[in-house]
């Protein structure tokens, strides 16, 4: 599944960069994040309880931040699994000035497998987008 999108933050690029990579902010903005620990520089272990309505599952996973080019781009790798299935994905996130605002462009690829994918695949794309938006909306609140 391809993931692509843009989100505009009303803040300068440096501020957006700092907030995006702040572990505490990350932990409070990731949907359903129950735990996020830095196990090595730019490597995190996380537990997320995610889903829609009552269809929720707990996933344990790893997040790695790679190829950091401060304040313009980085790559993120995510890997996780739980009872309903597994998630594996990567995305490139770039930041661009837009006047006094900052555009975040993300583009990546996610693989979702297991039970949740075979049963819920017709809603998977939509629900994933929903959660990406949730994440950026929560981020926006932190930035302002």
């Amino acid at each position: 599944m391809k993931l692509e999108g843009k989100y505009t933050f009303k803040a300068a690029r440096q501020k957006v960069w700092d907030v995006l990579l702040d572990q505490k902010v990350l932990a409070s903005c990731l949907p359903g994040c129950e735990r996020l620990e830095e196990v090595a520089p730019d490597q995190f272990e996380a537990r997320l309880k995610i889903g829609v309505a009552s269809v929720k599952g707990t996933y344990d996973g790893k997040v790695r931040i790679l190829e950091k080019h401060p304040i313009s781009s980085y790559r993120m790798e995510v890997e996780g699994s739980g009872a309903p299935g597994f998630v594996k994905g990567e995305a490139t996130i770039s930041l661009e000035d837009k006047g006094d605002k900052t555009d975040i462009l993300y583009s990546g690829e996610a693989q979702i497998g297991g039970l949740v994918a075979s049963i819920g695949q017709r809603m998977l794309g939509g629900v994933t987008k929903l959660m990406v938006n949730q994440f950026f909306k929560a981020m926006e609140k932190k930035i302002q």
Binding site: S54, V55, K56, G57, A83, P84, L115, I119
Partner: peptide, 11 residues
């Protein structure tokens, strides 16, 4: 019940 049978939901 299908969602329960697959344990996608656990009320």
């Amino acid at each position: 019940v299908p969602m329960l049978n697959f344990r996608l939901t656990r009320p």
